[in-house]
């Protein structure tokens, strides 16, 4: 995770600096940008290619299912070790009410934790970027906080905050706090110096400079941190549930695992995957729509 957070802001810095992005882009991409970059900055693609892209997820899922089934068939694994896709599908259908009930908890924990952690990160990064004494004293604390293995303090959180939602939300928030804070702080402290010079000659106040220049300029960095956070937030919630809970997919998985209902474990896993992917895409779409000037982030993911 450290590596990810270290790379995230630097790779997303290019968009913050239009000149860099401009020069790094090819001539073709350049003319493309002239047609206006709203939602789709792609070249007009061939119909066949478009169809292929549309069915791509289906093909990937099908291939994974076939591989899964093949492993089950070849190794002849018993259902209590590795259930077949069919058995997991059966569990999904039969137990859908139970699964949905528990999934609701996990999803709520993740989403609330995500926003709590992001807000906390923003509230840390902003004063750090604005006031050098805050930066001086808070930076080491921030780094030390990252040295604490959050997995290890999950039992403490449960002890302090109880078996309910609060401890899981805290866990998810803590896990995403660092990437969001670092990415946003990085974006805020790397404002193009030319803009700062310009603002100075224009007689800009510190706060207006923050509001109209530094903050918007840092948004792409924040977005990259938030994307990372979106991917790791469910992990926090699940760890919290493992350590102590009476609801949630993590709880259900432990429970089913202990009773050798491995099909149920797999069903939980599938729901978690589907949720994580959906959440990521919603956040990604939303961020792109909010930052329409940010170049090239579309092409990067395809």
């Amino acid at each position: 995770m450290d590596k990810q957070t270290a790379n995230g802001p630097t790779t997303d810095r290019a968009p913050a600096n239009p000149r860099q992005a401009q020069t790094s882009r090819s001539a073709a991409a350049n003319t493309l940008s002239r047609t206006g970059r709203k939602k789709h900055t792609r070249k007009p693609v061939l119909p066949a290619w478009r169809v292929l892209r549309a069915v791509r997820p289906l093909i990937i899922i099908l291939a994974l299912l076939i591989t899964w089934q093949a492993i089950v068939s070849i190794t002849d694994a018993p259902p209590y070790m590795l259930p077949s896709p069919y058995e997991v599908a059966l569990a999904l259908i039969r137990q859908h009410a139970v699964l949905a009930m528990h999934a609701r908890y996990t999803i709520a924990e993740t989403v609330i934790g995500l926003f709590a952690g992001a807000i906390l990160g923003v509230l840390t990064a902003l004063p750090m970027a604005m006031f050098s004494p805050v930066r001086f004293w808070l930076m080491p604390v921030l780094l030390v906080s990252q040295a604490i293995p959050f997995f290890a303090i999950a039992p403490l959180l449960v002890l302090w905050l109880g078996f309910g939602l609060a401890s899981k939300i805290a866990m998810a928030a803590l896990i995403i706090y660092f990437p969001v804070t670092v990415a946003f702080f990085d974006g805020l402290s790397r404002t193009e110096t030319g803009w700062l010079d310009l603002g100075r000659t224009m007689g800009a106040s510190r706060w207006r400079m923050l509001k109209y220049v530094r903050l918007p300029a840092a948004l792409p960095s924040f977005a990259s941190g938030f994307r990372v956070a979106t991917a790791v937030a469910p992990i926090g919630a699940i760890i919290g549930e493992w350590v102590g809970s009476s609801h949630g997919l993590g709880y259900l998985m432990l429970h089913a695992n202990a009773r050798v209902q491995i099909d149920m474990v797999f069903a939980c896993l599938l729901i978690l995957c589907a949720f994580s992917i959906t959440q990521y895409f919603i956040v990604d779409r939303l961020l792109r729509r909010l930052l329409p000037w940010q170049p090239d982030s579309l092409a990067r993911h395809d």
Binding site: W195, L198, A217
Partner: peptide, 10 residues
């Protein structure tokens, strides 16, 4: 002040 870069806010 006008610089070599246009310094337009994107």
């Amino acid at each position: 002040y006008m610089a070599q870069q246009d310094l337009l806010l994107p």
